[in-house]
Design a protein around this nucleic acid. Sequence first.
DNA 1: CGTTCCAATCGAATCGATTCGACCACTCGC
DNA 2: GCGAGTGGTCGAATCGATTCGATTGGAACG
Lengths: 377, 377
Amino acid sequence: MHQRPHLPGRPTPRQATDEKESALSSQRPTLADVAASAGVSVSTASLAFSGAGPIAAATRQRVLDAAQALGYAGPNPLGRQLRRGRSGIVGVIVGDALRRAFRDPVSIQVLDGITSTLGPMGLGVLLIAGPHDPTDPPVDPLVELAAMDVAVMMWGGTTDDPVLSALRRRGIPTVLVEGSRHPDISVIGIADRAGIADVTRQLLGLGHTRIATVTLPFTNDRSEGLVDAARLDALEWELTRRRLDGVFDAGVQPVAIWETPASLVEHGASAARALLAGPDRPTAVVCQSDLLAAGVVLGARELGLQVPQDVSVVGFDGLDLPWFKPDVLTSVAQPLAEKGRAVGREVARLLEGEPPQSLDLPVELVWGTTAGPAPTV
Amino acid sequence: MHQRPHLPGRPTPRQATDEKESALSSQRPTLADVAASAGVSVSTASLAFSGAGPIAAATRQRVLDAAQALGYAGPNPLGRQLRRGRSGIVGVIVGDALRRAFRDPVSIQVLDGITSTLGPMGLGVLLIAGPHDPTDPPVDPLVELAAMDVAVMMWGGTTDDPVLSALRRRGIPTVLVEGSRHPDISVIGIADRAGIADVTRQLLGLGHTRIATVTLPFTNDRSEGLVDAARLDALEWELTRRRLDGVFDAGVQPVAIWETPASLVEHGASAARALLAGPDRPTAVVCQSDLLAAGVVLGARELGLQVPQDVSVVGFDGLDLPWFKPDVLTSVAQPLAEKGRAVGREVARLLEGEPPQSLDLPVELVWGTTAGPAPTV
DNA sequence: CGTTCCAATCGAATCGATTCGACCACTCGC
DNA sequence: GCGAGTGGTCGAATCGATTCGATTGGAACG
């Protein structure tokens, strides 16, 4: 693992200290080389690049020319970072393997909002996968080892999340997206519980009495199926619980609670196949995400049911799904990009040394074509 | 911008050098603090953490205990990185704003392959957006400034890409995904040209004579519509050209070439509306991606056409689109995750100091339900 | 009992920058 | 003509680790 031909990294430590520096200059040039070549001190050369301090235009140009001649592409970020005590990196931990996490447009849009806010601040996003494969270590080594000034956890997770405690141990300020309220941690959330309660009440107003609900995962173990009382007790994910509570808040006792292993169309479809096949099927299904809802609609159609004539379906997120056209999901829309931007702003605040501040964004009911009056039996 | 209350970063530079070190230890502890507290030298303390060298178990434990007591969470990555000359970071530049780039499952799956290969090697992925908004600077500042050991460009781009030259200037080894063959740069590609030629020949064999093709973007300017000779000359993206050449290779002169601004369902749909409305419509459409193909199918259905009875549609990528069920796109499947893994392996090679090595992965024809014999007129 | 050898430990150099305070000419104003 | 002020430059300390070579103590060996 050591004796490779010629690494870009550290070469042999025996540098010709008493030789002419530029003699064996196959190494990458440093600021010191540039300074020497320009005939100025290192500090002056630094000034030429950073612009932090007074410097004569001529000197500056001389340094820049020398840099050009030596093929020096600017100060080494590693040196700068060590000195500054900042890496300029924000670790973003997504709640799953990337290919699964990002099949959900929700994460993508939030991530886009985050990067577009952080970018102009000179911060980069380090992508870290969350816990997924049970054979993996519970926390990605990057969480323990990578340099980051702030961390963002893209899924609220549970309160005693090992990732969260690792970050805490390292003293890395953290922003939770849709987590549970935590005393000294920033949580950027949405009014999902109230939003779900609202849309559920609308369904009640339309005469629905047999209402089922299709939920996001309860825990990391990714199981699928009908939820009984025991399972309900085992619910760990705060997000799932909040949205479920929204249904309860409307005074509804669902005729069925179906847990899915991920927010994906196919899992909505299988939920539909299970829930809507029997004779006493529900007349409305409240889903905790739009992808699930879309899946339920597709599944219902497979069964020969019409939406919304035979069954109403509502989702959550307010996604724009081009392949769903001309139908439009009835859904509780959350401001996805704004959520990302809010995260970005909170990251900035933390970097400034401000205390954590949580925030709840509003949601908005979007009445589409997938929900309507309960069928008259 | 300077006088904030208490930053996590560098505080006041006036440290009590002649004081007791642990006196005003509100600062984060360093390895030196731990060493002092454990009564060993800094080098020994380092050994206790890195395990690189012989150390007595008892000593090691003493250091670890001291660290625990001080709340020292392990060596500061910044110091380590500077010393090692490596940041452990791989910059991945996606070809667009994240929200657009990642609406395409192709990028996501490749990215997943990359991270899952890089992760076990202790490397992290720094996400960098490619050029998208024309008002933005042509290269993201991160490309110029961020610390990275290797860069991956997720879209081949053009040969004289400004991002590529910036990386070159910085001397950062680079891996191109689906780029044009470059002498001293690693390119991980697929046999897309041959694959498209193959599927096009199949269409010929099925009696199709009027074949149109729907392409990926020609340039960064994101225009949409029929391509004339002038526009064909302006084609910059190598990827688009290769797949187009595949059609030509089969001896087909397309009755229409339609350029889309991105690989998205809706752009496929508008292509269909434009291409399939007239009386002399093509009987087959070759699309450069599956999302485009799916869009074409949906668009065709909107026009009242049946697929594949009235028009055959083939795609490229071999995606699994749950919402497209029970239909299955006829497509040229590429090994997406394997592509990502190949990128990861090549990154590893470059880090070892090996010379760049390019690679072409095979594709496989998947015959689905969206292509069939040409309609008998 | 004197060597030899090895494991364990330490000191010091080093990575590549930033930044503070000192210093040196100048110019300006009186 | 002299002190104050200032723009420009430099030296040196510093960030937090890693690592090489030297040193030490004790066990094994002849």
